[in-house]
């Protein structure tokens, strides 16, 4: 009898429906209220996305306080990069003791954002910034140089309107 009732009335299905119903009503009755604890949808393009402090975005060259390029062309990053996307050429400049890069090319389309380059740099002259909007219309724009017209190695790209643009800690 018990088994017959169980087959007749789908208790098991009802149990599942109860859960979905619970979640549905929870969202339904609080859809337009702000700051509900289970509000999982972020209003991304309007509100800039907040990345974790360690987020690995695009490679960026840093300058020191005086505005000088920090990189001293030790080639460590070029050597360690597993996909070989960094190309550095250097020139001995008279203005300072260490070498200065004349060319620092970064082919972003092949970068896998592994952070090996940042780790290998003993001079803290590169970081992976928080920029994650990396789509561009032309493939050439993916190859980033020090003096690129569209985007260069020093700043945030113009495409990254909604990434959080502050510095990494």
């Amino acid at each position: 009898m018990h088994k017959f009732l169980k087959t007749l009335i789908p208790f098991d299905i009802a149990k599942g429906m109860l859960i979905t119903g619970k979640h549905f009503s929870k969202v339904f009755f609080s859809a337009n209220r702000r700051k509900v604890p289970f509000h999982v949808v972020s209003e991304y393009p309007e509100v800039p996305a907040k990345m974790q402090p360690r987020f690995r975005g695009r490679l960026q060259l840093l300058r020191d306080e005086a505005g000088e390029i920090k990189c001293v062309c030790c080639m460590a990053c070029e050597k360690i990069c597993p996909t070989q996307v960094i190309t550095i050429e250097s020139d001995k400049k008279e203005v300072r003791k260490t070498k200065l890069p004349t060319r620092y090319d970064f082919e972003m389309e092949r970068c896998i954002f592994c952070e090996f380059c940042v780790e290998s740099c003993g001079f803290d002259s590169i970081i992976l910034n928080h920029q994650f909007e990396l789509a561009v219309y032309n493939r050439e724009d993916m190859s980033i140089a020090m003096d690129g017209k569209f985007q260069n190695m020093f700043g945030i790209s113009p495409v990254a309107k909604y990434s959080v643009a502050d510095e990494k800690d």
Binding site: M51, Q52, R54, R56, I112, F113, C114, E115, F116, L128
Partner: peptide, 15 residues
């Protein structure tokens, strides 16, 4: 994945 991101900065291919 958020925990992954907090730890190492990447979500899926973590390295």
């Amino acid at each position: 994945l958020d925990i992954n991101e907090a730890f190492c900065g990447s979500r899926l291919t973590t390295t």
